[in-house]
Design a protein around this nucleic acid. Sequence first.
DNA 1: ATTAATTTTCAATATTTTTTGAAAGTTCAA
DNA 2: TTGAACTTTCAAAAAATATTGAAAATTAAT
Lengths: 168, 168
Amino acid sequence: MELAQGKQKFIEAWGRLGSEWGINRTMAQVHALLLISPEALTTEEIMEQLSISRGNANMTLRDLIGWGLIEKQHRAGERKEYFYAEKDVWLIARQVAQERKKRELDPVLKVLNELSSIKGDEKDPEYKTFKKSVGDINKLAKNVDKTLATMMKAEESWFWGSIFKMFK
Amino acid sequence: MELAQGKQKFIEAWGRLGSEWGINRTMAQVHALLLISPEALTTEEIMEQLSISRGNANMTLRDLIGWGLIEKQHRAGERKEYFYAEKDVWLIARQVAQERKKRELDPVLKVLNELSSIKGDEKDPEYKTFKKSVGDINKLAKNVDKTLATMMKAEESWFWGSIFKMFK
DNA sequence: ATTAATTTTCAATATTTTTTGAAAGTTCAA
DNA sequence: TTGAACTTTCAAAAAATATTGAAAATTAAT
């Protein structure tokens, strides 16, 4: 396979994966494009390479900055802004984990905790089943939460090293 | 908070989380409803409680069966089908992990492996960056893959026990 | 201050995804 | 076999989400 073809495939695959996981396809594709670009790109170049509009490019780039995945760069004597992607994949993974934890897991944990404190008749099967399921999910979610928090502070080699030692 | 109110909140929260993670909102809500039901429910009851159409209920229930999260039950002398959700949360987590791995992670790993084998000029920054990023993502994805495979076979207490020992 | 380059905004439009509901299909007891 | 109970299908409609593009806002050099 040719490099140019490979790039296309990578951008497509990343976009598909993103949309299956609740991330806007275009956002994943812009990220993919920047990930494999040695140099920072301008909005113009991104628009052209992915055939998207200026408005779309602008909003998507802003979101990616919000996720901490890319940064704006300025060049002396130039008005244009350049965009460059963080290339450290472990850092990216932690960044995404952190954002999704904050935006999605934390709010659910809050609700689960509220729901865990509902009182009722222990003889009522409706109440018992509700309490059991909510309680179990709450415990699982807390474990996930703690693990993510640790992962966010960890070095990649240490993290996977420990995982695989544990699974040996 | 009342139990009835709590149930509503749980169904809503589960639906929201589902849609943020690429799972159809209705599917997550039907699953939530069944999770907190001590008894199996009929299509009719599900339609009514969630205010959804027969067609929607039917398709959603079939999907949930496909994910291995609920099962059909028959009752002697009755024509109607009843639906009952697996209540073991750890089993549910493993089931979901397994399905998503199969449907989404495995295809991406296949593409990444192909892309990793592309040859090119080591002096070309375009090639070098492509190769590095794809290679790094590939490694990370393989680690995730192995960890999920182990999790799928593991007992809950053992799994979290090991995780937290490791992070101590 | 002016202006040309560039970025941002957002109402309108397009696309994708989900849902509906009625018709067709199936099942089984009589 | 018939027909009532129930399930499945799927084309059409609705809802949700993403994208466009042109106008407005911003910026910085002169």
